[in-house]
């Protein structure tokens, strides 16, 4: 509509009322939200008025020092993200292949591996790397593995994990496609805080640092679950596996181990 009316002018009541009203509401809310309510919050530990304003605005505060209880055992100090252990190249794989010759006694390929050791072919690099770091640091202890791991350098561990990740997965020891997936594997037990195994160990999703379980020996899987449940193995970051294993029944452990061992 053609009008001579100027909209952006204080004389225009639409302009002055809407802008004034909005600004007034903002100012009132600022007073209430930044000056009044901070003092109404329990334990807000406010010093000055400026403190109150900063807290309400969301300026971060440094965490106050507190007394901490130190661990009585060695926990894993590995930083585990989806980027670990970092990019690798063919040279790294080659060096890993050489280093892996000493591992082959126990971790021989596929069917020849010993039942109490894991198959490493095709494992995600992050899974192998994390366990090697933990063995070296003493967060995970094994009479056979620890002496080997202690002598590995950081680069050795990266190379070894790159090598095993590079290899194709080997068929399991006793493949039997007929074994149905038990409830504990595909569904877990929600109220006992047991998510489905497949939500981290492949099948559904792979969590950074989690190993593949398909085709692993039942004896090895069972032994590890029992070790987690019994607090004999504690290198899982912030108890993520212990939380699960300790709530599993003996039967569920058997079922999960047997199922994964039967996978091709």
């Amino acid at each position: 509509m053609k009008t001579e009316e100027r909209l952006f002018s204080w004389r225009n009541s639409w302009f002055s009322l809407s802008l004034g009203g909005t600004a007034g509401l903002v100012v009132l809310s600022l007073i209430a939200g930044f000056l009044v309510l901070p003092y109404a919050t329990p334990n807000s530990k406010l010093g000055s008025l400026w403190d109150a304003i900063c807290s309400a605005a969301g300026v971060p505060r440094a965490t106050a020092p507190s007394e901490q209880v130190a661990p009585t055992f060695k926990t894993s100090a590995v930083v585990m993200t989806s980027q670990m252990p970092g990019p690798t190249d063919t040279r790294s794989v080659g060096r890993g292949a050489t280093l892996a010759m000493q591992c082959a006694i126990c971790h021989a390929s596929g069917r020849h591996s010993q039942p109490d050791t894991p198959n490493l072919e095709g494992q995600p690099a992050a899974a192998v790397y994390k366990q090697l770091r933990d063995f070296k640091a003493g967060a995970r202890v094994n009479a056979v593995m620890t002496p080997f791991a202690i002598n590995l350098t950081e680069q050795d561990m990266i190379d070894l994990s790159a090598y095993y990740a590079y290899l194709p997965r080997q068929p399991g020891l006793h493949p039997d496609a007929g074994v149905p997936a038990p409830a504990i594997v595909i569904r877990g037990a929600a109220m006992r805080n047991i998510p489905a195994c497949s939500s981290c160990h492949g099948g559904g999703e792979v969590k950074a640092g989690a190993p593949w379980l398909e085709g692993q020996s039942a004896i090895y899987i069972k032994a590890q679950l029992q070790a987690f449940a019994g607090e004999h193995r504690r290198n899982d970051i912030s108890e993520q596996m212990r939380n699960i294993a300790r709530r599993m029944t003996a039967q569920e452990i058997d079922e999960a181990a047997a199922y994964y061992a039967s996978r091709p």
């Binding site: 809407s18 909005t22 509401l25 903002v26 009132l28 809310s29 600022l30 209430a32 939200g33 930044f34 309510l37 901070p38 919050t41 304003i53 807290s55 309400a56 605005a57 969301g58 300026v59």
Partner: peptide, 28 residues
């Protein structure tokens, strides 16, 4: 005018937004 700058009420329980801004957006 007012339906947009109020989305922080979906973040009432979030730890990264200051309480003052939660309140303003609650008003709007």
């Amino acid at each position: 005018v007012v339906s947009m700058p109020i989305g922080v009420h979906h973040l009432f329980a979030d730890p990264q937004v200051g309480g003052g801004f939660k309140f303003i957006q609650s008003v709007f």
